[in-house]
Design a protein around this nucleic acid. Structure first.
Lengths: 107, 107
DNA sequence: CAATTATATAATATATAGGTTATATAACGA
DNA sequence: TCGTTATATAACCTATATATTATATAATTG
């Protein structure tokens, strides 16, 4: 899954997570997304490109505007991958009693 | 949540995800984690440091070995953050019919 | 058509990531 | 105690990320 690289990497940046949090409230244009940040428009445009490349947002063309909205693709992929960790963590937890019981006598 | 930076950033690297996938099968020492990769031991040690810093793994001291295992902290935090996106995606989906109906007449 | 608005791209600078080799440290086993 | 094994750290190099400013493109409006 080479896309997981892009998805996790996109989410690693706090500005991009803030953009996604804003988009969770609904569609927004580039300039609307620039406004709350102390960053230039080109900087936000690049972040949006990263988010789009990762499958985290989609953009429409509406005249000269490019309204952005959340996309489901990447979140689904991430969830799927994390499920593997969750399963492992749960089964480790299940085994914990046994492991502790086996260890204590030796110490 | 400054930890989300570290957690997502840690997961963005395929080597580190592979290490986690290995640890999902059970605890492993540093050298056991080096073995399947075409990387040097210091490289893996650095990856482990990153994973530990992100709250994705824990390490015990066992003589000269440092067995690693998965940690639940970061996964929980990530899940919580993603839940926000999931909710928004679902409600956007719910609204989609209405939005489309409202748009079509204008175009 | 000219001016403005919305967005993208290019050029550039700097910081950070991730790899390597060399070396330090600390426990183990003979 | 000495050599070996397991791991960590330091120094260094290169590639990439992110920001900026300047500029291009394309739709909108007067």
């Amino acid at each position: 899954m080479p896309n997981l690289d892009a998805a996790f990497s996109a989410l690693a940046d706090p500005t991009r997570r803030a953009i996604l949090a804003r988009l969770a409230l609904g569609e927004a244009t580039v300039m609307e997304l620039v406004e709350p940040f102390d960053l230039t428009q080109p900087a936000i445009s690049r972040h949006l490109k990263v988010l789009e490349g990762a499958g985290l947002i989609l953009r429409r063309v509406e005249g000269t505007k490019r309204p952005c909205r959340l996309a489901p693709a990447a979140v689904a992929e991430i969830d799927q991958w994390l499920a593997m960790l969750r399963r492992a963590l749960e089964s480790n937890y299940d085994r914990l009693d046994g492991v502790l019981a086996a260890m204590k006598p030796e110490q």
